[in-house]
Write a protein that binds this DNA or RNA. Sequence first.
DNA 1: TTCATAAACAATAATGATTACTATTATTTT
DNA 2: AAAATAATAGTAATCATTATTGTTTATGAA
Lengths: 126, 126
Amino acid sequence: MIKHSRQRECIKKFLANRYDHPTAETVYLNVRKEFPNISLGTVYRNLSLLTKLGEIRKLSTGMGPDRFDGNISPHYHILCTKCGNVMDLEIENIDHINTLANSGFDGEIEGHVTYFFGKCRDCLEK
Amino acid sequence: MIKHSRQRECIKKFLANRYDHPTAETVYLNVRKEFPNISLGTVYRNLSLLTKLGEIRKLSTGMGPDRFDGNISPHYHILCTKCGNVMDLEIENIDHINTLANSGFDGEIEGHVTYFFGKCRDCLEK
DNA sequence: TTCATAAACAATAATGATTACTATTATTTT
DNA sequence: AAAATAATAGTAATCATTATTGTTTATGAA
C-alpha cells in the first residue's frame, strides 16, 4: 500500500517541468530548495518507485549516471557525444523493428530501447 | 605506443570463444585459470582498451553491469527480462532509423544503440 | 646482448552511483 | 484520537569501475 508523500510529489513536479532529463543528483539538489532535509536515498527510492509505477521514465544511456524523464509519452532520445546533453527526439513510430527482431529470435520480443547519438547544433557550430 | 601483453591476448581469446556476453567479473574469473595473479583492474583496463581499439564491443544494457562481446560484426542483442541472459540477434539492417531520427533533430545523427527485450524460449516454457 | 624507456602489471586505495538499514516522523485507518 | 504502518532522514554498506603506485616486462636502440 502506497501512502502519499510531499517529497515524492515534489520530485514528480520537478521532473514534469524539466526537459533536460536530470540525474538523481540534480533532482536532489533542486528538491532540496523546498525540502532542505530530504536525503539522497529518499530521492533514489522515489525515482525508482515512480519508474516502477510508470509515472516517469528512467534513461540508462550507458554514458554517465541514469537520467529521469517526466514525460512518459512515447518518444526517443539523442545523446550529444560532445557536450553530453540528452535531448528529446520526435520520430515516427519504429515498432516494426520489434517484428523484425522477432523473426530472427526463438522467443518473444516485448519491446526495445533505442538511444541515438550524434552532435547537437551548438556543438556542430563550435 | 601499444605493447603486446599475454594477459590482453588471453582476454581477447576468451571473449572470441564465448557467445554469452560475459561481464568483467566473469572474464576475470576465467582468465585467472591461465593467469592466477591477474588483477581485476588489469581486466577492466584491457577491456576498455580493446573496446577503444574496436576489437571488442561493450554492452551497456542498463540491467546489471556492463557486458562484453568478442563479435564486432554488426548485430543486435535481446535481453530476457526473466533470466537476464543476453543473446545475439540476427536482424536485417535498420540504419534507416538514423535517417528518420535526423529528420526530427537539428544536428547530426551518427548512429544508435538498440537493445530488445522480451522472453527467451526457455523462460517462455517454464 | 645489454641497456634504456615506457607500457603493462599486481595490489590496493579511491571514487561514483546506488541500495540497505534503523530509529523517527507522517499518513492513513480504525 | 489512537493504532498501524509506510515513508522519511541520516548514515552505512555495496557494487561497479577507475586511479595510484611501485615493480615487471616488452620493445627498440646502442
